[in-house]
Structures are given as structure tokens and as C-alpha cells.
Amino acid sequence: MVRSGNGCDMVANGIDQSEHTDLDPLEGLIVSVERFPVEAGHIMMFARSIGDPNQCYYDDGSAESGGVIAPPTFVQASAQFDPVYPLRPQIGQVWFGSGSTPSGLTKPAPDAEPAGADELPDEGKGAEKKSSGAAAGGLHAEQHYTYHRHPKPGDVLSATSFPGKTWQKHSKRAGKLMFSESITEYRDQGGELVVTARGVGVRTEKVIET
């Protein structure tokens, strides 16, 4: 459920945000996954990683929620089940993180063609050159979730993403700001909507100097 009133807030706050320093680079904002099995062990690892000892993420005897449920931001981990998720090393392919050199892209590949910049996420495209952190790429500006119910072990979700609104604003510091929204619907094996996610990314015309 996207409330129309929020759209205006979002635009207004988008301007404010751009005047702040760095935002997190856009990370896998758009995820479409055919099959996202929700597993108790995965929920446990996720809850540990956000430092949350709440027993409803660990103990199947938890009374209040009637068993284990997923933490509020867990559906982001559907990236694990995206076969071509660009922010996970792919077996047998060049990875843009460091190995013998600071970036896997800066050493010549012995046999295979090195991964082309086109195949890389925005942050990776700047890999050949040292650039300002907040490069003129995509930044993850907002993330919103609406819970129709909370995912639980045994659910097999699918995630379908589609573009939402786009809008532009101008900032003295960053030039033209291009906002784009993506909506992802997580449905269970019965086709029922479980979580609706709305991400907002912003692209800047100029590099924001930090």
C-alpha cells in the first residue's frame, strides 16, 4: 500500500538528503526472484547479523508470534536466491573486489574475457579509476516495507519488481537529481501478498564532493 501523501514528503525530503554527505550506493534495489524459500537457519543468521537476540527469530516455541517469523528487513536477503545477483561473486567469473590487486578488474584475466563494465553494478563501473566515494551513480535513498503478514519458515516466496514513479529535482551541489522508485511484491506459494517493498534510488548528474 503506497500512500499518495508520502510521495510529496519523499520529494521534499529527497532534496534535503542530497544536501547531506554520502548516501549508501544503490544496492540491489531491484530484485526479481522466482523462488525464495524462507528457512529457519537463514532467519537465525540474519537476526544474528543485525544483533537481534529476540527468540521469535530463533526458537520455534516462541509463544507470542506463534513460531519463528522473519525480522522486518529479511526479504532483502532474497538476493541470495537471485541467480545473477551482481553483488555476489559468481563461480568462475572475475569479481571486482580485491585479490592480488585492489580490484579483480585491474589484472589481466589469463584466459577468459574479463567481465565488461556493462555487467557490473554501478559501483563497480568506477573500478578502473579512483573516484570520489559518492560517484555519479545510483544511491539507495529510501526503503519502505508494508507487511501483509510476516514471512515464516516454510514460506516459498517469489519476488516481482516493477518500476514505480520517477521524478527529478535540482541541487546546487549535485546538479540534476533523478529519483526512481521500484516496487517489489513478495508473494507466497498460494499467490498471497506477504510483503510489499518500495525502494527509492537517486542518480546525480555531478559527483558529490565529500
Binding site: D22, I50, E142, Q143
Partner: peptide, 26 residues
């Protein structure tokens, strides 16, 4: 996710209907 811990500790397990944030600083 870290902020979500405060939210769920406050509202209780399984009761959250909406949760949204803007990323302001690293």
C-alpha cells in the same frame, strides 16, 4: 535492520504493518 530491532522490541513480535526509512548519512 539495526533500527528494526528497536521497532520490534517496542511494538512486539509480528505486529509491524509498515516500516520505512530514508538513508541520510553513512
Amino acid at each position: 535492520g539495526l533500527t528494526g530491532k528497536l521497532v520490534t522490541d517496542t511494538v512486539g513480535d509480528g505486529t509491524l504493518t509498515d516500516f520505512g526509512v530514508r538513508f541520510v548519512n553513512q
